[in-house]
Every structure is written in C-alpha cells, then in structure tokens.
C-alpha cells in the first residue's frame, strides 16, 4: 500500500512538474494505433507495408508492383491490395489508393520511430533530449536506402490532390513539430511557434530534394547540407529576435524621454 502511495506521489510530481506529452503516458494507456494510420503495427497491413518498404521499394519504388511482391512474400492473396488502400479515396490524377497507403505508412512509421524511445527520456528532464540537428540528421538517414526513389516519392506527395492536403502537408507539420518538441530546442508561445516549425520543415524538405540527386557515399553531402541549412535558419531567427529587442528598447527609450520632457514643462 505504501509503495503504491509512493508511486502515486512520484507520478503526480512528474505529472505536474515536468514536460509532458498530451495525452501524457503517465496517466493514459498507450493508443493501439499510430494516428493517422487506422491499423495496429502487428496487423496484416503493417506486415505487408513494412516488408515492402524494407525489401521491394528500394528496387521497384513506390509502385503497385512492389506491393504485389510483398503481398505474395508475406503469404496473402493479391486481393489484399484493395484492403491496403481502403482508407484512401481513389483519385484519377493519383496512383492507386494502395500506393498512397504505402507512401503514408512510410512517412508515419519513420516519424514514429524517430521519437518512440524519447518519450520516456523526456519525462525526466528536457536536458536528456537530443538536439534538433541530431533528430533532423537521424530522420534523413532513415531515407538513405530509398535515396534513388525519392524523386518518385516527391511526385506522389506534391501532386495537387486530396492526398497532399490530408496526408502530405499534415505529416510534414507533425514531423517538424515532433522534432522540435522531442529535442532540447526552446519552444515558443507566440508566432515564433509557427515560424520555427516552418523553418524546420523548409530545412527538411530542401535536404530531401538535395538527397534525391546526391551521389556521395551514404549521402554525406546531404547531411552536411542539412546541418548548414538548419544553422542558417536558426541564425536568421536570432537576427529577428535581436532586431525586435532593439526596436522595442528604442520605442521605450523614446517614450520615456518624451514623458520626461513633458513633465519638466
């Protein structure tokens, strides 16, 4: 009983004093799915898509052929293709719904894998979290095996369609939000909240574009490019803060001088 009380008091202290994730893992049971996916990671859909990403996509790209090979390799009937694409609306300008699901799964699974182990570390102290640069590089390195297929992936994501609005753009936002939240980067409560996420999204997207044409060993040039890009964006943020601070200081000084002048007369 006393151990339980002690545990309760410890979790209460952790809950009220440290950085948490909404909904927090201290109080709530883990969700069965990783949103926006609608199936669990041990479902047939996940097994097929994981197999496809690891074994077929590096050779065949994000295509139905790659999916069909994985469906057969995992031991299902080819009609499974329609189950895979069930949560996406068909689009005449886009690939099949199953390919859209493969693209979505690639984005969501890698985003989840990036921060999965960090939630527990972050509960103790934000200082235990890695840097933003580390997370950006780690996410880019996850795509090194697919570097030859990135052009195809970008086409799928950037094609103006419902898929771009509902999946591609929100996933980019979630990724940049996760990278800032699960790193030791300072977060903000004003418009800087938006500009920082926009900057990180920009650094990530341009680095991925660079990676699509990168021929260096293990995409080393891309990693250098990403580090440089992120550093430039953060420096730009510092410039803005300094200018804003100086402008505010100047306004206050002018107002106080004017008030002092008036009070003398």
């Amino acid at each position: 009983m006393s151990i339980r009380l002690l545990k309760n008091s410890v979790s209460r202290r952790a809950l009220l004093s440290t950085r948490l994730y909404h909904p927090n893992p201290i109080e709530y049971a883990n969700s069965t799915v990783v949103a926006p996916l609608t199936y669990t990671m041990d479902s047939p859909q996940s097994r097929i898509l994981t197999h496809c990403l690891q074994n077929e996509v590096p050779h065949w790209g994000f295509t139905e052929r790659a999916l069909l090979k994985s469906i057969q390799a995992v031991g299902y009937d080819s009609s499974m293709m329609s189950v895979l694409g069930a949560s996406n609306s068909p689009s005449i300008f886009h690939s099949s719904p199953a390919v859209m699901e493969l693209v979505k799964f690639n984005l969501v699974k890698k985003r989840h894998a990036l921060t999965e182990s960090l939630a527990a570390a972050g509960l103790g102290s934000p200082a235990a979290l890695p840097s933003l640069e580390h997370l950006l590089v780690k996410r880019l390195q996850m795509d090194v095996p697919l570097s030859k297929q990135l052009g195809d992936l970008f086409t799928q994501l950037a094609l103006p369609s419902q898929f771009m609005v509902n999946v591609a753009v929100p996933e980019l936002f979630r990724l940049s939000d996760d990278m800032i939240y699960f790193s030791n980067e300072k977060d903000h409560f004003d418009t800087a909240w938006y500009s920082k996420r926009l900057g990180v999204s920009l650094a990530y997207t341009t680095s991925k574009l660079f990676m699509a044409q990168d021929n260096s060993l293990n995409c080393q040039d891309t990693i250098e490019f990403a580090r440089d890009k992120l550093h430039r964006i953060m420096t730009l943020g510092e410039y803005y803060n300094n200018v804003e601070e100086y402008a505010w200081y100047s306004i206050m000084t002018t107002v106080n001088r004017a008030k002092a002048g008036f009070s003398r007369h």
């Binding site: 069965t32 069930a86 949560s87």
Partner: peptide, 27 residues
Amino acid sequence: LNALRATPKKGTLKAGGNALQESKFEP
C-alpha cells in the same frame, strides 16, 4: 470500412500485462 479500423479488443489493456497498465486511463 469501419470493420477494418483497429479497435481495442476486450481485455487488450489487461493483456498488456501489468498492474501499471491496468491503473491507467483509456486514451
């Protein structure tokens, strides 16, 4: 398509194993 959506099975949380999971709220 609702049938394809993952829903927590009965006792999923208990099957997760321990008293700590049992004492947690549903998400």
